[in-house]
Design a protein around this nucleic acid. Structure first.
Length: 259
DNA sequence: ATGGCTAGGCTCCCTAGA
């Protein structure tokens, strides 16, 4: 089973690039972030015609997540549990019904800049809530894949120029500590389980020729429960997508599971 | 980067992103 995460930075802007990548990569299911669309206007027919089921959790203008799947989806949850007052659409869960069911969480973790301030407070509170949710999901001891735009640079080797990020919400010590608390629940970073090389990125800014200079950061991750990690066959970053026509500033990251 | 680009709102400039 091939599962992917892709921050598309606007479904309307990516209405050609996303189907082009789906056609080439043929993932069984993909977690999308920053659809920047309400559910009612998401162009679901484009993807249904390609054989994908479409489950969205959108909002107007910003944020918004979705799951596309060629396999049946069950037990869909929209919104990160634990705070009914949170109106931002950043979390969706579903069980992908392949030969072995996989619980898939798609997330768009808050950016948190500028720091310090209310946006950074929201980021850290959201991460604590996410930790609680994952703790609960791990109790099921079923294969669990937590895929998305984490807005976290885990280590210095995950940035071309880590010194440029020292005061940034993506790399502050408190951010990385909160991320480690989640990983330390017993999760595996799928990419690092297969590739320990520096210079492996999933995001390049649109500005200042970041792509041409390979001035990137690795912030799109797939974290695996022990039962999912046991099934891991491969994990790759589809870097070449960034050089395509009208690209997102993020590229897809995918795993292949023996499931 | 003291943000050089992109996307969306409902605009002719603003917010937001990372």
């Amino acid at each position: 089973m091939k599962l992917a995460t892709f921050n598309i930075n606007g479904i309307k802007a990516r209405i050609d690039a996303l189907p082009r990548w789906l056609e080439a990569a043929k993932p069984d299911a993909v977690a999308l972030q920053e659809i920047k669309s309400v559910d009612e206007t998401f162009p679901r027919e484009v993807f249904e015609d390609m054989g994908y089921r479409v489950e969205t959790h959108g909002q107007k203008g910003f944020n918004g997540v979705a799951i596309l799947s060629r396999l049946p989806l069950e037990d869909i949850i929209r919104g990160l549990p634990g705070d009914d007052s949170d109106e931002q659409s950043r979390w969706i869960e579903a069980t992908v019904m392949g030969n072995r069911p996989i619980r898939l969480c798609g997330l768009y973790l808050p950016n948190g800049n500028p720091t310090p301030g209310p946006k950074y407070d929201y980021k850290l509170a959201w991460m604590a809530r996410m930790e609680t949710r994952i703790h609960d999901l791990l109790l099921t001891e079923e294969p669990l894949v937590i895929a998305g735009d984490y807005n976290v640079i885990p280590q210095a080797e995950d940035a071309a120029n880590p010194m440029a990020w020292t005061d940034d919400a993506l790399y502050l010590p408190a951010t990385r500590a909160a991320y480690r608390r989640i990983v330390n629940l017993g999760l595996t970073d799928a990419f690092r389980a297969r590739n320990q090389s520096p210079g492996q990125y999933s995001f390049w800014d649109y500005q200042a020729g970041a792509w041409e200079k390979n001035n990137g950061i690795r912030i799109d991750h797939l974290l695996l429960s022990p039962q999912a990690a046991d099934l891991l066959r491969d994990c790759q970053i589809d870097k070449e997508v960034r050089a395509g026509e009208k690209p997102s500033d993020h590229v897809p990251v995918w795993i292949d599971l023996a499931a």
